[in-house]
Amino acid sequence: MYLNRRTALKLTGAGMLGAMTPGLSFGKKEEIIIGHNSNQYKVRMNWGMLDAGQNPVNNCHEMVEDAKGRIILLTDETKNNVLIYDKSGKLLESWGNSYPGAHGLTIGGDGSDQFLLIADNTRSQVVKTDLKGNVIFKIDYPKETGKYDYPKQFVPTETAIDPNNGDIYVVDGYGLNYVIVYDQHGKYLRHFGGKGPADEQFNCNHGVLFDTRKGQKDTLLITSRQDNCWKRFTREGTYVESIDMPGSFICRPVLRNNNLYGAVYRSTSEANEFSGYIQIVDKKNKVVSTPGGSQPSYKNGKLEEQKKQDPMSVFMHPHDVYVDVDENIYVAQWASKKTYPIKLERV
């Protein structure tokens, strides 16, 4: 049963609940604090809440930040596919009514030349727009690969932009699980991967990121969500390693400084509507904090299986995170009863 914050405090008391749940505590004025070690956060449940009659959301899929410091949210609600907030959670702008399968959101370019890549898995397209929503070009299903017979086989979930030359990497997470590479103008270049059990294949390649941290040589991190891991590849498509997160159905990797962040929409042991937590991975590929989940523990160098550990039910299927310059985390959620994003304020 869902135990909301007010009910939980009434039934158990803040001190008892915090004692029962490592990684969850209360600060001043009964603030909820989640996370582990040095990565702990105050929960701001109402950060992105708006008037649902004016600016509704359905599934809140992904978030990015533009050069002006605005937080851009993508939802598959066609009354306003894109909601643009300031850091306080105030709505600044909204647009978009033609993306019924809006799923992946990537920002590229610099300054006034910034643009968005929207992966729409209903339209079977990736669409490049400016920050006002004007369409620049579209990428249709990749028939050039010889792997796709018709458009609906292509169900793109995410994109990444090569920081060196602007090439676009598209992951087909809900389709045939290929990674398809295009130049900056949308011209097909190559592909790799596909669905399967081998190291170089995927089982729901849901997200993709260029890892630009020192020592990674601009490698790609690509989700294999049903395998509970991220996989590292060269930009040409050669498999390098896996970052295993047993029990965690992890979504796309997000980079801030030397840490990787990812939303887990559910764990292996729990698949109810109040599932999910956040993973924080350090530069050594070790999970150091799991806000909303069990404390990360390693045995013989391997991460032990994790699960949700949050009686306050802060999360409902986290789908993506954005991490700002102050390392605050903004959480967009899927199948969450049309709720708005949550902010986790770094302690």
Rank of each mutant, 00 (worst) to 15 (best):
N55G: 00
A271I: 06
L220T: 09
Q279W: 01
K217F: 12
I222K: 00
N55V: 11
A14W: 08
Y330M: 00
L189N: 11
P197K: 12
I107A: 12
R256M: 11
Y330Q: 01
G89M: 04
N81P: 02
K343C: 14
G237P: 11
H319V: 02
I168Q: 00
T145H: 07
R235W: 00
V331G: 05
P246V: 06
N164E: 15
G13P: 09
S294W: 01
G247L: 07
Y99A: 02
Y85C: 03
S98H: 11
E327N: 15
L117Y: 11
H36A: 00
I107C: 12
P246L: 09
E30F: 13
G247H: 07
G196Y: 03
F192A: 00
D66V: 08
E236L: 05
H61I: 02
G247I: 07
T145W: 07
V135N: 02
Y148G: 04
N328D: 15
A102Y: 07
N80D: 11
D110K: 15
R225T: 15
F233N: 05
T106L: 03
E77P: 04
L116K: 01
H206T: 10
K343M: 15
E62K: 13
D120H: 05
I243T: 06
V347T: 14
G96D: 02
Y298K: 05
L255Q: 14
Y261R: 02
P197E: 13
P197H: 03
W230I: 02
L74Q: 03
S124D: 12
H61C: 10
Y322V: 02
T268F: 11
P163S: 08
M16E: 14
A67Y: 11
G247E: 05
V287G: 05
G111L: 02
P56V: 10
T21D: 07
N55S: 11
D282L: 01
K138W: 01
T7S: 15
E241Y: 01
I342K: 09
D76Y: 00
G109C: 08
